[in-house]
């Protein structure tokens, strides 16, 4: 891939990206560009939190209770060390948000990956095998759709709390949340993949592979799967925003990630207590971050959906 391109061979990956229609449509709209930059900044901030954050909020030694409830720097009483103020325990808000975003993004990505694998797998099986198995999977999907995602997540969380000993539950809480959100979102993947597989399966290039004598499982993986990944990518992007919001909601309700690993939702919940006593920044800034994150990811998803849709091109 890095070797110099031989004459006649296709141009390098970077060139292909910047030359592609996808990149072109990306640069066409300032909204898409803006949300792309927002997502990039937020992800870099989150991933680089241990290095970039001005304070290490997980080190109790650095906490100064005296600095609790410091307002943002532009408000009277603000302190330049804490750019957007501190919370009730004197933790730097900017740093807690950066660390909180890590958890939110981690849960979001993991949940999306989980539902993607589950949904794509079930969708492939249903679409390719058809018949009774297809009917079975799709009826389960219908039943699933009758339950709101949050209810399923609450249910999973409740069951795991009852079934697992307390300290073990705290240890596993992150996985439980990922599982809960993942399980509640797989249906859209399964439906899309099933539909696409049924269309692709009838196409002549799949028939051609059958005539050649390729094994059905190989046809699925090598021919059909790559052609269903476009729509899956779109759903995954839109699903990421949804997963992050669901996680925030669960954490806000206190059934999400453990308090020792605060996510954006936990931070908002924490700030909620002080919202009406004047310390608005403790809730507002995590909230704003969540809104910008979810909105940017959603806008990117919308762009991807339009850009990959041949009918709109």
């Amino acid at each position: 891939m890095t070797a110099p391109a031989a004459p006649g061979s296709p141009p390098g990956l970077l060139r292909r990206i910047f030359d592609s229609d996808l990149w072109y449509s990306f640069t066409r709209s300032w909204i898409t560009m803006g949300s792309g930059i927002c997502v990039l900044l937020l992800v870099v901030g989150a991933l680089g939190a241990p290095v970039l954050a001005p304070h290490d909020t997980f080190d109790p030694a650095t906490l100064k209770l005296m600095d609790a409830f410091t307002p943002p720097v532009w408000v009277e009483g603000g302190n330049p060390t804490y750019l957007i103020g501190t919370d009730n325990q004197g933790r730097d808000m900017l740093s807690t948000i950066m660390f909180g975003m890590r958890i939110s993004l981690l849960v979001g990505f993991a949940a999306v990956l989980f539902s993607l694998v589950l949904g794509v797998g079930l969708g492939l099986v249903a679409g390719y095998l058809g018949g009774t198995i297809d009917a079975l999977i799709m009826r389960v999907a219908d039943i699933k759709l009758a339950f709101p995602a949050i209810l399923i997540a609450l249910l999973v969380d409740g069951v795991s709390r009852a079934a697992l000993p307390r300290d073990m539950h705290d240890q596993l809480a992150l996985y439980v949340v990922v599982f809960a959100i993942g399980v509640s979102n797989w249906v859209s993947y399964a439906r899309t993949v099933r539909g696409t597989v049924m269309v692709e399966r009838g196409k002549d290039y799949v028939q051609a592979a059958r005539v050649i004598g390729i094994h059905p499982a190989v046809i699925m993986v090598r021919h059909v799967l790559p052609n269903v990944m476009g729509p899956v990518l779109v759903i995954a992007t839109l699903g990421l925003a949804l997963a992050i919001l669901t996680e925030a909601t669960l954490s806000f309700l206190g059934v999400g990630v453990p308090p020792t690993q605060p996510s954006l939702g936990t931070l908002i919940r924490n700030g909620n207590d002080y919202l009406f006593s004047g310390e608005w920044w403790i809730a507002i800034f995590p909230g704003l971050t969540l809104v910008v994150l979810a909105l940017s990811v959603n806008l990117l998803g919308d762009w991807l959906r339009d850009a990959l849709n041949p009918k709109l091109r």
Binding site: K203, D204, Y205, Q207, A208, V211, I212, G213, H223, P226, N227
Partner: peptide, 21 residues
């Protein structure tokens, strides 16, 4: 299997019979 190799097919729609990827 031994016969698969010996009979092949050409399809109508040249846009659908080749995997675009």
């Amino acid at each position: 299997r031994p016969f698969r190799r010996r009979l092949q097919m050409i399809f109508q729609d040249p846009y659908a019979s080749l995997n675009p990827r």
